[in-house]
Structures are given as C-alpha cells and as structure tokens.
Write a protein that binds this DNA or RNA. Structure first.
Lengths: 140, 140
DNA sequence: TGTGATTTGATCGTGTGCGATTTAATCAAG
DNA sequence: CTTGATTAAATCGCACACGATCAAATCACA
C-alpha cells in the first residue's frame, strides 16, 4: 500500500495544495495562512481569548503565542490581559487587521474558483471531511 | 458563509486530526509522520532519488534534504550520489528502516479503525479529496 | 482562611515546510 | 571543445506545530 492510496496522504497533500493556492493571494497582504485563519475568526467575533482561538483552530498556546506576537508586531492585532481573569489574554483587531477585513470576500471567492467545483459539491465534501475529522478527534 | 472559505479549514483541521492519530502510533517507533511517508514510498520502491520522493510528496529538496539527513542519522535510510548523474542522490532503506517494514500493515489498519468509517466510504472520500487536490494543483 | 489542584499562557527545543539563493553536474548550441 | 542554460540538491532564514515544562492566577474544599 503506497501513501497516495491512503486517506491520510490525500488530506496531507490536499491541505498542502490548498495552502499553495492561498500563498500568492495572501503574500501581497503580508499574511501567512494561519494568520489569515486567525483574522477570519476575529472578523467574525472580535476580542476572543488565546484559548478561544486555540479551540477553534485546534492549536495550543505554544503555537499561538508566537504567532499572535508576530501579528501584533505587524499591527494586525493587539493583545491584552483580561481584567476579570488575569490568566487570559484577549486578542483584538488592530488597525491593519481591521483594514484587511474588506479583502476577505475577494480572497474566499478566489479560492472557491480555484477549487473548480460547484458550490453544492464543495459543501458536501467539506461536511464529509469535517465528519471524518470529528470521528478522529473523538477517538483520541 | 462561502464553502470555499470552509473547505480550506476542513482540510487543515482534518489533516491535523489525522497527524494526532498517527503520533502515538509512530512515536514508539521513533518516527515522525513525514518520515513514515518517506518509508512507505521506499518500502514500495527502494532506491528512489530525492526528486522522486519530492514529486510523490510534493516537497522540495529544501524540506527533504534535512529530513533525509535526520533519517540517515537514525539508521533508517542511506543516501548516495547516483554514479551516472552525480547531481542526483539515491535514497535507500537501511537496516532500521527495513526492519520497520513489518509494522506498516498494523499501523495502517490502526489508522483505518480510528477513522470509524466503512472502507468503501473512506475510499470514496479519499478519491474526492484527491480530485479536489488535483484541480487545485492544475490551477496553480 | 489557607493550601493544593486546576487553568491559562508563555517558554524552550526539535522537526517540518517553503521562498530565495547557491553549488555542482549535465545538456545544448555553435 | 566551450560557453551559457538547465537541472538536482543543498543551504539559509523564517514561520508554523507540538511535546514538555514553567509561572501566575484562580478555584475548590476542608
């Protein structure tokens, strides 16, 4: 059995292919793919904590903290301890991050076209992939 | 919400979930997930060049060279310049890598069970994901 | 109230992953 | 033959990703 036959490798390579499609779109904005994911979450709901973002992206603070610090240095977000619970850090959109909000639609449309699939078919595939992901998570 | 916006994330998170399933299986063998992928390719066909492996995994030499050097240091593979074309490097299974060959079936079966899906359904999903991946590649 | 357990981020080291560049070998046109 | 283009790896720098661990804040409960 060779890797290309396996579901794991199909996800591995499809994820890579997706990131290669995003790269030329995000690079002019000075964003990486994980940074864009964080912005998407904040555009939807600003002021989430590091833990909130981690639960959404399935990433821990050891990945998020340096990532968010880089985004802070770029003026994309700001980081502030929560007054009621000083353990938590609230992440909010800063000027540059807020300014990019208008670009999001164009980017997602661009990616959708690169998929070359009808919207309905893409939605069905997404749900199947998410279903598999959740079964994998529950077994862990 | 546009699906293309989410299909990317479903692949991203499903790939993460898959690697988390592999990790406890591979760690006792001292392997990482990409290292396991390389071994799978070599178990199928030994003596491939760096370029061959790169085309199969969609990775460049800047990723593969350090990875293969680590695998060489672990006794998993050996690296040798090709005599007929000194630009190429042939990667072959070494003792430790050959010795792990017998474990492959158990690992893939273990992953399959973690998916919690009938084989037929998993195969269909795999083909859809690969189809999407190839359309993404062709547009790039 | 006080003390141990828990929660939340941060830090550290290692292993990918990739854009850009470099080096060495081979090829191709004259 | 030679010289410029091409190809295959290697190198470098940077950004994730994660296991292990730490520090500080908060909680739980006697």
């Amino acid at each position: 059995m060779i890797p290309s036959e396996m579901i794991c490798f199909s996800l591995y390579s499809a994820n890579h292919a997706m990131q290669r499609v995003y790269q030329p779109v995000l690079a002019p904005l000075g964003l990486t793919y994980p940074q864009f994911l964080v912005l998407m979450l904040l555009w939807d709901k600003d002021g989430q904590t590091v833990g909130d973002l981690g639960r959404a992206l399935q990433l821990e603070s050891n990945t998020l903290t340096p990532l968010l610090k880089r985004m802070e240095a770029l003026g994309l977000v700001s980081r502030l301890r929560v007054a009621e619970d000083e353990r938590q850090v609230r992440v909010s959109l800063a000027d540059t991050g807020e300014g990019l909000r208008g670009k999001a639609d164009g980017i997602t449309r661009c990616i959708f076209e690169a998929c070359g699939v009808a919207e309905q078919e893409l939605t069905a595939l997404r749900d199947q992939v998410i279903g598999l992901r959740d079964r994998l998570r529950s077994d862990g």
